[in-house]
């Protein structure tokens, strides 16, 4: 697709974030914090970097993204809807009985590559997709977005080993380093202070960026796509709840919607840039 400007990307991510707030408020449940933290990364991937066509979601040559942190479903669903995989009206069905928009990412939704929700598995699924891509001599790229709490799952490190063994340079893992998990701050729950070194020692190329800086996200993803010989790990430093002041860095909003109409409206105003 045509190269979209950073200004336009920012407008799209604001839309995604607003949809996230609407979805979780309407459902009275869901995970806004980790959806808001990856909104900029998702925007860059789906609106600029990934080779995808909403009209051909099964194209064998398409790039793939597995959202390993499947609780950030509002973020992915909103991105896919705005990108044109399905009508935006469907988003109001999120977590409701009449809808396919399951609480955690579900493959029945157009554009979703794999159902996820139990942490530590999506990255392994992405490894399998990358192995298949190599075997079939396809040029598609596979992305997995994982959380920093998710790094506590041993299976993630098993997949790092596999990615290294098979030199999966057609695969990129993006870490949403927002430093918050359900029970509190990752550094308190289970500290992992040397993520760069840890992943690098597993044989991955590591790039550290500000996960809300578009130039940095674009640069890292383009480097990752072109890097040969080993898989790339993008350590994206982010803010949990990014864009909604009272949600930022607040573990409460890992898995809770705005508490009332005041919070809800405040979130939407802030995301529209209407609040000083």
């Amino acid at each position: 697709m045509e190269q979209i400007s950073v200004g336009d990307l920012k407008g799209i991510s604001a839309q995604i974030r607003k949809r996230v707030i609407e979805m979780v408020y309407s459902a009275k449940s869901g995970h806004p914090g980790g959806s808001l933290s990856i909104a900029d990364v998702l925007t860059v991937l789906y609106f600029r970097e990934m080779n995808i066509d909403p009209l051909k979601p099964d194209d064998p040559d398409r790039d793939r993204l597995v959202l390993s942190k499947g609780h950030a479903s509002p973020g992915l669903y909103a991105t896919l809807a705005i990108r044109g995989f399905f009508p935006e009206e469907y988003l109001s069905g999120f977590r409701k009985i009449s809808s396919k928009l399951e609480g955690h990412v579900h493959r029945g939704v157009p554009g979703v590559e794999a159902s996820t929700g139990s942490l530590g598995q999506g990255i392994g699924i992405a490894v399998g997709m990358a192995l298949a891509g190599k075997l079939d001599r396809k040029t598609y790229h596979v992305y997995a977005i994982i959380g920093d709490g998710e790094l506590q799952e041993g299976s993630v490190w098993e997949s790092f080993m596999a990615g290294h063994k098979y030199s999966l340079d057609n695969m990129t893992v993006i870490l949403d380093r927002n430093r918050v998990q359900l029970d509190g701050f990752t550094n308190d729950i289970m500290p992992q202070n040397n993520i760069r070194e840890m992943v690098s020692s597993f044989g991955w190329e590591v790039i550290e960026i500000d996960g809300h800086n578009y130039e940095e996200i674009i640069g890292a993803v383009e480097n990752a796509k072109n890097f040969k010989g080993k898989p790339t790990f993008i350590l994206a430093n982010t803010v949990k709840g990014k864009g909604v002041s009272y949600m930022e860095n607040n573990p409460k909003y890992h898995g809770s919607p705005p508490a009332n109409d005041d919070e809800y409206e405040r979130a939407l105003r802030e995301l529209s840039g209407d609040v000083p």
Partner: peptide, 14 residues
């Protein structure tokens, strides 16, 4: 665990 998830990715790729 990695084997089983990779099996899913390979199967999803045909």
């Amino acid at each position: 665990q990695s084997m089983v998830s990779a099996a899913a990715g390979l199967a999803l790729s045909g």
